[in-house]
Each structure stands twice: as structure tokens, then as C-alpha cells.
Simulated assay, not measured.
Amino acid sequence: MVNMVASAGHKLGQIVGDWWEAHVVLPLLSDVASQLGLFLDNRFVERTCRGGKILWPDSDGNQVDYDYVLELDGTIGAKGVPVAFFESFWRRGARHSKDKARDDTNKLLPMRSTYPTARFLAIAACGEFTEPAREYVRSREVELFYISKTNIVAAFAKLGLTIDYPDSLPEPDKLKLVNDLEESLTDQAKKDAFSALKQIVGDKSFKAFQVKVASSLAAMPQEIRLYVLTRTGPVVFQTTEEVRKFLDTETDWAALGGEKHEYVYDVVYTDGAQFSVTASDLDELRQLHSQVETLEIHMRSLDITW
């Protein structure tokens, strides 16, 4: 039961949000993982190779947590190679939609420049999410799977369940609504709500998103470019005269400055996507290519039925 001190709106958001993540997005992506022979990491599975959060480092070393990650060769005991990252949420109101779009999109984008195998970035959203917010996501080339609030409310209504209320409704009535929903929403009812949602929006809508994931991961590398970037440390002078004398002579700048190399791994895929990653040494460059090649071999070996 909802405590009288707790916010009914917050509790309602938790109930619907948990349903969306566990009974809509999770089975949707689990099916994709099964079809593609990948491991789906999410908060509903315990792994010995991580703590509670699903953390991945970006190119700056920041640890970022995600809702779902598809991994190649991932297991309960060991992380695999990340190939897709997802965020998901339910929003009852449209307020701050653009902020939410910006936060989640900008959270996903660094994975594309960090991992050349991160072929698919997406947000699975339901509820009130404004057109400017949706356009922000799409304009950054992040996929968006979106179900409107009207359809979510209608799916629960088919089961005789109410998940929304006018803002003017007195707090005691809101609390009663949320308590009634919490008591009625059994595991079977949650599954039935998903079935009702598929009837309303059409099962093909869900299948189309799954096909997008598979198609993106199945795109093959068609051109790979390797660049070597040579840099030196500073050659330090105390006076302008020293600089002029240095520039007037033929000096081995690299020897004085300490020559360093970086490597750029640039890959263009058959779907037109292009990704560039910088490696600090040859071993890292070899590792990057090994991941790209492993994903290519894996996807070529599949017989996808979609």
C-alpha cells in the first residue's frame, strides 16, 4: 500500500515505469538477443562480473550506467563486447521532455565514439514525450521506439485498470487509485497489459523495432581506414632569439620533443554509418579491429528469420 506521506504521482510513475521496462522492453530485447545469439544485460539479471549498475566506461574514462546493453560473447560471469545500448522510461507528463531527451541522448552518444562495435543506440520511451523532444533524439541519429500515453492508458483500461488521473484530483483519491492499481496488477495482469498494448498499436510496430536492431548490427564493414598520428612534446625556449635560431636550423624536432604515435581506426558500414576511434598504441588498435571483425563473423554466421 502507498504511504500517505509518499507522492501518489511518484508511486504511479514507478509502477508503470517498472511495467514498461520489465514487461515490454525486456521481452522485446530478449527476443532480439535470442535471435542474434547475444547476451542482454539489464537490471533484472544478476551477474558476477558487475555490481548493481550496468556500467560502461566512455572514452574519457567516465563510468556511465545504462538500462540495457547487448553484448557479443557476454556471460553471467564475464562482460562481452558491447554492440547496442538502450535507455527506457515512462513519462506521465510532458514537462521537461526536451531535458529528458537531451540527457538520455547525450548519455548514449559517447558509446558510439568509444566502441566501434556499438552499432545501435536507442531510447524506448512511452507516455508524454513532445515532438521537439522526439526530434532531438532522431536528429542525433539515436533510434527512438515510442508509444504514446494514450495507447498505454488504453492498454490498461482494457483490463479495467486506471493508470492516470486529472491533476485536480484530491490526494486521497489519487492514493486510492494507486493502491487499487498496485493490488490488481499481478504478474499475469502485467503480461495481459502488454498483450493489450500489442493489439492496440499492432504487433508489427514492435517487430519493426526489433528488425531495426538486427539490420543495424548486420551491416557489414565495407571500408576500413587506418591513420597514424604523429605528435611530439614541446621544445621549450626562454627567448624569442632562441626560437628564431632553432627555426633557422635543420633540427630533428621529433628527437628533441619526444615523438609519440596515435592511431585512428575508421570504419564505414554498408548502411552508411561511419565510426572513428583513436587508439593510443598498436595493441589497442589490434583490439579494436578484433572486436569489429568478431562481430562481423558472428553476424555472417546467423540465419535471421525476420
Results as ranks from 00 to 15, higher is better:
142 V>I: 13
146 Y>N: 01
16 V>H: 02
300 R>N: 11
86 F>D: 02
136 Y>T: 04
216 S>A: 05
135 E>F: 00
126 C>I: 09
277 V>G: 01
82 P>L: 03
290 S>K: 12
65 D>E: 15
74 G>E: 02
110 P>D: 12
233 G>W: 11
49 C>W: 06
230 T>Y: 15
292 V>R: 00
47 R>E: 15
67 D>Q: 03
305 T>N: 05
95 R>K: 06
203 D>T: 08
6 A>L: 07
245 K>Y: 15
94 A>N: 11
20 W>L: 10
110 P>T: 13
276 S>I: 06
288 L>G: 02
3 N>V: 02
37 G>M: 13
302 L>N: 13
39 F>E: 05
224 I>E: 14
211 V>N: 05
4 M>P: 13
57 P>L: 11
236 V>L: 15
290 S>F: 12
183 E>P: 00
59 S>A: 15
174 K>M: 11
303 D>G: 08
106 N>E: 08
90 W>M: 08
4 M>F: 06
278 T>V: 14
114 T>I: 05
24 V>N: 05
5 V>M: 09
85 F>V: 07
134 R>S: 08
131 E>M: 12
140 R>M: 12
36 L>F: 02
145 F>G: 00
7 S>M: 06
251 T>E: 14
41 D>C: 10
184 S>W: 07
144 L>A: 14
26 L>D: 09
271 D>Q: 06
153 V>M: 01
247 L>Q: 10
112 R>S: 08
